[in-house]
Design a binder for these strands. Structure first.
Lengths: 256, 256
DNA sequence: CAATCTTTGTGCACGCGTTCACAAAGACAT
DNA sequence: ATGTCTTTGTGAACGCGTGCACAAAGATTG
């Protein structure tokens, strides 16, 4: 799920597989928790359980970073926290701009986890002139007109798009033109970006639809052969209208 | 990325690969847009471009659903919209509860894309007694005490967790015990669920960290051998200090 | 009806990611 | 020191997902 438009070159970045990179933050979180409890070392087994992954996978993941473990003992928590942080680039400060300060943008601005890991909200940007100057999460909202200047003045390379779908591509283009090379997209649109720019997307609607698919499948199996699940409840699942149109016809469905 | 804790059995659900399922919502969105423009048919090439994927991949994806295309012509937009909707289970109504009505939960409640695709916010739940009764997005917030009753009365099978990390597992357990079998988790924690329960997670912090990794890599290459990118700007990237906050935990995220 | 042109559906090969299983490394006890 | 025990690091096998490339299917034209 890296690039939105361009095919991901599966950039085996510096030898570290993409799948591993995606898990490093997970490990880091688990390690940070251990660190706060002053736990000195962890075995791959324990840490894997905490991170919700397979221990062999975890060991292989760490092996890409180097050999930081001690056989018979495990991994030094503090050392590993540092190594992963460094690998992820969290030992430096990343100024971030959020574009689109609606409900979501505001929630993101208030999001505590931002500052905690080296990310700093450098600016909030919105197209609505009425928002200009209004502080959100203690930061005054600035107008889209100044987007380029804001990016450049703050040396921002990571942008967060929380605008409506219709405005996303345009905002994206401006961000990229101004020098942003990494984008986190919350708008439900496919963003078109040039090579060298990374896009990650977060889409509630898509996640729900995927869940619905599996949910439907479960419900189907359930009625076919009675629930193979340990199910805590087999109540009146699946609420109201179970339409399920005829087959070769065009019913009405709809978009967001 | 289905189950949080338990290893995903790579459930080739009903023959449709997980990777394909994850793309269906993308196709559906693109098709819906075409439908609104009254475009009667699309070729795999066009649709693939709109969805940001490879055309061969798209054709193979559709082949799992059956043969809905016409050689020499393409796919019938309306028909495909219907088929995908049906496959994803969007032809039925899915009541959803959102637990944790903070900044994020409120933003989710206000999220328009919810109702649009068969999802209906059946209830908002929060642990803060002060929130009880207060309407958010036109829906009165209810107290956690009534969680089980709410789930059962509404036949809810999909739950959204937008609580702080500390409360997430507990809320999750109660949801599952009450009959929820699909969870969308916005809290930055690994959720432990029994088999048969699907968990998908959305975590802003993780996404940003992954972007930071690639950003750092780009910056590294850039200084090593001058920017191989078409880069629109090579300004003063990479900002200030190298702090690395102590950090405890992080909240979550969401789409517009 | 035959020829041509377009576009689907898919066989095949390749590469990434996951998992198993085990040898090597080191801690620890005697 | 020597042996035992624990845990890492990784070689190897396997399976999934991706993309190429092409044959088959159907539309379309003459």
């Amino acid at each position: 799920m890296a690039t939105g438009r361009t095919h991901r070159p599966a950039t085996r970045s510096r030898g570290i597989p993409e799948a591993t990179v995606a898990r490093l933050p997970l490990y880091l979180r688990a390690l940070t928790a251990l660190s706060e409890r002053s736990v000195p070392t962890v075995s791959s087994e324990e840490l894997a359980a905490a991170a919700g992954v397979n221990s062999a996978k975890l060991r292989k993941d760490f092996s890409y970073l180097g050999s930081y473990g001690t056989r018979g003992v495990g991994y030094d928590v503090e050392y590993l926290v540092y190594q992963i942080s460094r690998e992820l680039g969290l030992t430096q400060d990343w100024p971030v701009v959020i574009v689109g300060i609606g409900n979501l943008g505001a929630a993101l601005a208030n999001y505590g986890g931002f500052a905690s890991r080296g990310f700093r909200v450098a600016a909030l940007i919105d197209a609505d002139p009425a928002m200009a100057g209004k502080p959100v999460a203690g930061i005054p909202v600035q107008h889209t007109d100044d987007l380029e200047k804001i990016i450049q003045d703050n040396g921002v390379s990571i942008g967060v798009i929380a605008t409506p779908a219709g405005a996303a591509q345009q905002v994206c283009d401006r961000l990229v033109a101004a020098g942003v090379t990494s984008i986190l997209n919350f708008a439900p649109t496919v963003l078109n970006v040039p090579d060298g720019v990374d896009v990650r997307k977060v889409d509630l609607s898509i996640e729900l639809q995927i869940l619905a698919f599996h949910e439907q499948r479960k419900a189907g199996e359930e009625s076919a052969a009675d629930s193979p699940l340990p199910g805590a409840a087999a109540a009146a699942r699946k609420a109201s209208a179970a339409d399920q149109g005829p087959d070769g016809d065009v019913p009405a469905v709809m978009p967001a």
